[in-house]
């Protein structure tokens, strides 16, 4: 609740997943007060959504670097590796 989804949006997948794991463990231990439980539950919701997005939005994109004569990268072009 206090954490805006914005800070979660910047989290790398691994960090978000680790935080979600910590939240689930905390909730399962039942050692947190009800109010805190609800708070972290909602944060868990946002973390889960973020992870989901990172996983589901992934798509394969294959490009080849094009090089100038002096060996510097000029740009990219699609690669068909066959």
């Amino acid at each position: 609740m206090t954490d805006t989804p914005a800070d979660i949006a910047k989290l790398p997948f691994e960090a978000a997943l680790a935080e979600l794991e910590a939240i689930v463990e905390k909730l399962e231990k039942g050692a947190v007060a009800l109010e805190e439980s609800i708070k972290i539950y909602e944060r868990g919701e946002a973390l889960k959504a973020h992870c989901d997005k990172l996983l589901k939005n992934a798509e394969m994109r294959i490009e080849k670097i094009t090089l100038s004569a002096d060996g510097k990268p000029k740009g990219t072009e699609p690669l068909d590796a066959g």
């Binding site: 997943l17 979600l20 794991e21 939240i23 689930v24 909730l27 399962e28 039942g30 947190v32 009800l34 439980s37 609800i38 539950y41 868990g44 919701e45 889960k48 992870c51 989901d52 996983l55």
Partner: peptide, 17 residues
Amino acid sequence: NLADLDARRRGAILRVA
């Protein structure tokens, strides 16, 4: 793994409640 964590999270909050 994420789905499992989410299910556990939902279950846990129900038990908390």
